[in-house]
Structures are given as C-alpha cells and as structure tokens.
Simulated assay, not measured.
Amino acid sequence: MRSEQGGPGERKRVKAARARRPFWKELPLLIVVALVLALLIKTFLLQAFSIPSESMQDTLQPGDRVLVDKLTPWFGSKPERGEVVVFHDPGHWMKDQPTPEPGVVQKVLGFVGLMPSANEKDLIKRVVGVAGDTVECKGAGPLTVNGKPLDEPYVFPGNVPCSTNPDAHFKVTVPKDRLWVMGDHRQDSQDSRYHRDEDDKGFVPVDDVVGRAIVVAWPLDRWDTLPVPDTFDQKGIGKAAAAAPTAVAFAGAVPLVMVRRRLLSRR
C-alpha cells in the first residue's frame, strides 16, 4: 500500500532524493552563505588588516596581518591608552602615499573581509593619550602622560622614546573625543607629533577608529596577541574608561540566564 502524501514513506523518498543531489548543485548556495557570513563578521565582529610600513616595529612587522575587534565599540567602548588601534586617515596623513589599484579578486575578498582592503587609507598606531590627558615629550624622553614618565619596553630597540628632532617635541592636552597616537618605531613613524599644523592638530577623532588590533594572525610563525602593556597601569597616570568589558559581559550573560530559566521551568 502506498503511503499517504506527507507520510513516513514520502518523507523518506524526499530525504533520499536530497542525499543523491550532486555536490556541485549545493556549492553555489554554500558560497553565498559563506560570503554573507564573512561580510557580517567584517562589519560587526572582526576585520583583517595588513601592516604596510615599519612604523610599529618591533611590535608589528611589514606584511603582518592583524585581526581588529569591531564588536566592543557597539557597546559604548572607547579606545584606551596602550591599545593598538586601526583608524581612518583623519586628514592628510597619507597624502604622499598613493594607494595601489587592487585586482578584482582582492576587491571581492577585501569587501567581505577575507583579505585586507587595498583601497582604504587606514593607519595603525598605539594610543598614548585619551581625552583630558596631558602628553609631553622633551628631548630624547621619556614620554610623560599627566606628568608621569612612562617605561615603554615596546619602543623599537635603539630608538629614544621621544626624539632628537626639535620639531617632534610637544606638550598637548587631548580634547574630548580625540586620541593622541604614536608608533612604536618612534624615529620612523609619521604619527600625531608630525600633524600638529593640520586641522585636527594631530589628534585622531574617536569616530575614525575602526577598532582595536587584538591578534597577529599571519604569518603563522608570528601569531601573537596584542595586550595593553603594563606601563599604562602605573599609578598617577589616571584611569581610562573601560565600558566594553561590562557591556560585553552583560550581553553574554543575558542568553545564559534565559536558558537557565527555561531549563528550570521544564524541571
């Protein structure tokens, strides 16, 4: 006897037909799903960026690929001292650096975040001062924040923390919603120090920050995390805002509480 439509026999035939479907027919759908997921990850979670220069040595080397956290700013977090951040060119910092024309493949992969975008003019530096901080450099250094000299082990070997170039000496107070950034390779970094005559006076708007670099992902033999150095925990510097951990913890706790309540109600 034939089973009724929608019965166990019919469902078995449908499953068997699906199992016999050639893989190449499923492949386009799998590619579309993968690209959509990659685009969502790039937009809201993580994005890959390529290190173009020596300005962050020895922390980062030219050609390194870093993953940038784009999630925590959604929870109200702002960059803190010591973080390595990627930010859009706030003015004309890269006016003398032409952007190479990317190929079709790189455009597509860069769009979905599987490769660093080749046509975006982004920079990567370390945050030294946040809103309200007074940052100062005299002579060879050390660099001071709110009058406290910093011990900076990440500065490129052989470099001085400030500069022997008088044009690079400064004392600034960081305005609201702005950052003061510097490269770890102090004698080879065109950072905030060298853009004080521009409209933003060398300060980077917080809104221009793409996110914090958290991991060196490539090459594999250089895989490492990028934590905030202990130097920025020194007493006397002052405490920067840290809204993100609380917000992220809260957002992660809500689903767990709901699941726990559902399990308890079933019992």
Rank of each mutant, 00 (worst) to 15 (best):
S3G: 15
Q5P: 13
G6W: 08
G6P: 05
P8G: 06
G9K: 00
G9L: 09
E10D: 12
V14R: 15
R20D: 14
R20V: 04
P22D: 00
L27C: 07
V32R: 06
A34M: 05
L35P: 09
V36F: 13
V36D: 01
L37D: 05
L39R: 09
K42R: 12
Q47A: 11
F49S: 02
S50E: 04
P52Q: 03
S53L: 07
T59M: 13
T59E: 12
P62S: 10
G63L: 05
D64T: 07
D69N: 14
K70Y: 02
L71Y: 00
T72F: 06
P73G: 03
P73C: 07
E80I: 11
H92W: 01
K95N: 13
K95T: 02
P100G: 07
E101K: 15
V105Q: 07
V105L: 11
Q106W: 06
G110V: 12
K121F: 10
R126S: 01
V127S: 00
V130K: 02
T134V: 09
E136T: 12
E136M: 04
E136N: 02
C137A: 01
P142C: 00
N159I: 08
P161A: 10
S163T: 00
T164M: 13
A168D: 14
F170M: 02
R178T: 06
W180R: 08
H185W: 02
Q187N: 10
Y194M: 11
H195L: 02
D199V: 11
V204L: 01
P205V: 13
P205S: 14
D207F: 10
D208I: 14
V209H: 09
V210A: 11
I214F: 11
V215D: 05
V215F: 12
P219E: 02
W223D: 04
K235M: 06
A243T: 08
A244S: 12
A251V: 11
G252E: 04
V257S: 00
V259C: 09
L263F: 07
L263Q: 14
L263E: 03
R266C: 07
R266F: 08
R266L: 14
R267T: 14
